[in-house]
Amino acid sequence: MAGNKGRGRASFTFNIEAIGFARGEKLPDVVLKPPPLYPDTDYKPVPLKADEAEEYMLALKQEFRATMKRTPYFMDTEEEKQEIERYSKRYLKSYKDDDLEWVPDWRRLPREMMPRKKLTKGPKRQRTKGTAKVPATLMSTVDVLKKIEDLEKKGDEEKSDEETDEKEGGKGKRKDDDDEEDEAADEQEEYDEEEQEEENDYINSYFEDGDDFGAESDDNMDEATY
């Protein structure tokens, strides 16, 4: 030990020849940086198993993930609303399956999970609209196309032409209304969050009930359908 001292080499408490350094050999430099992100490998990895079963499971996995995205369980952050609806977006909307409405079995869940009637109204309305809107616009284009076809057949019946005009006008108006309502709902939601802390919300609910939900009010509002 003591013999190592003063010979230009750091002093070790043990014989460094035991760990494979010959007498007089230089020690490796001290490494001060982290190891590389993609270190070289000495041996090539074995290729993946690729038989029919694996292929099938791979397909299953991709399909499962895609299906999950369409189920009501998938909660994405709501996209920022774009002022102009992009044409390209129209074909991308993967609208959720209509028949896949999910009503949780409230008997199995803690009571606090159950949305209180008033609280759910704000966001709920938005949600139904969010999903209902896409098919609606698609629907309306289909409707209009149909109408135009009809018109072509009928030729010069001006009466029906006026009708469509009216209808379309009406639709545009309704949409505007919807937008306004959305904003109102937004405000309402924020307001609600503050309110819910204090739990004295009867007066608000009084006003809330007077609100008209427009065309979508026919579905069941008592339970939150996700």
Binding site: Y73, M75, P104, E112, M113, P115, E193, Q196
Partner: peptide
């Protein structure tokens, strides 16, 4: 996160 979203997310997680 807002209370409603937390509730819904928990419902989803419990369901699964």
């Amino acid at each position: 996160t807002s209370l409603d979203q937390v509730k819904k997310a928990l419902c989803v997680l419990i369901q699964h």
